[in-house]
């Protein structure tokens, strides 16, 4: 564990808590894409399949449970909780996210580090996470103005993988033979997809107004 990875995990945790705070306290998911949340639930479900078979640390297992629990409960809230579901913008959240799942699965079957069931699904979760934010970014452009909580959520979610990239650079220089191109490229693509959001976020943030 290094400071970049810890910062990345805490940023990721913060993004999840901000979204849960918004949905649970003000019972609103306005501006939030259910499709992105569904993709993230699949990402965690396929990435943490080894949660019961390989123990890394209490921290690791705890965080996996938090991410699994929060992603599925957010999907549940947005789908089935009456008050929250009412604030879901179904007409605007129309990105065909299932079209992202198959290509990621095919790509994982073609490009992976080891051809085992767990490894292929783990690689699939990397590719899927890289594009999982697309429905949310499309929704963002359609709804123009979003509230601060949603803006913070997207900012933190985009930032965590950027911190992971710093973690990989650090590990590359400190651990011999630490080379994982698949993860590095997927992480880079994921972070670059947020580039224009970050641009507008900082413009608005510096301007002191909401994210538009």
């Amino acid at each position: 564990m290094n400071i970049f990875r810890l910062a990345g995990d805490m940023t990721h945790l913060a993004s999840v808590l901000v979204l849960l705070l918004k949905i649970h306290t003000i019972k609103s998911c306005a501006g939030v894409s259910l499709r992105t949340q569904e993709l993230y639930a699949i990402v965690f479900a396929t990435r943490y399949l080894d949660i019961f078979t390989s123990f890394v640390s209490v921290y690791n297992t705890f965080m996996k449970l938090v991410f699994l629990g929060s992603s599925f409960s957010i999907v549940w809230y947005m789908r089935y909780h009456k008050a929250v579901h009412r604030t879901y913008d179904r007409e605007q959240d129309t990105f065909r996210h299932w079209f992202l799942v198959l290509p990621c699965l095919v790509l994982a079957l073609l490009i992976h580090e080891k051809f085992t069931f767990l490894e292929v699904l783990w690689t699939f979760s990397l590719y899927l996470e890289a594009v999982a934010i697309l429905p949310q970014l499309v929704l963002l452009q359609r709804t123009r103005n979003i509230d601060n909580l949603t803006g913070q959520y997207i900012f933190l979610l985009g930032g965590y993988r950027g911190l992971y990239i710093l973690n990989w650079i650090y590990r590359y220089f400190t651990e011999p033979h630490f080379v994982h191109w698949i993860t590095w490229i997927a992480g880079l693509v994921q972070t670059l997809l947020y580039a224009d959001f970050f641009y507008y976020y900082f413009l608005r943030f510096i301007g002191g107004r909401g994210v538009e």
């Binding site: 690791n60 991410f67 994982h180």
Partner: peptide, 10 residues
């Protein structure tokens, strides 16, 4: 060379 792993990451 000992292959490093990413499975200790989230």
């Amino acid at each position: 060379p000992t292959s490093t792993t990413l499975k200790d990451e989230l």
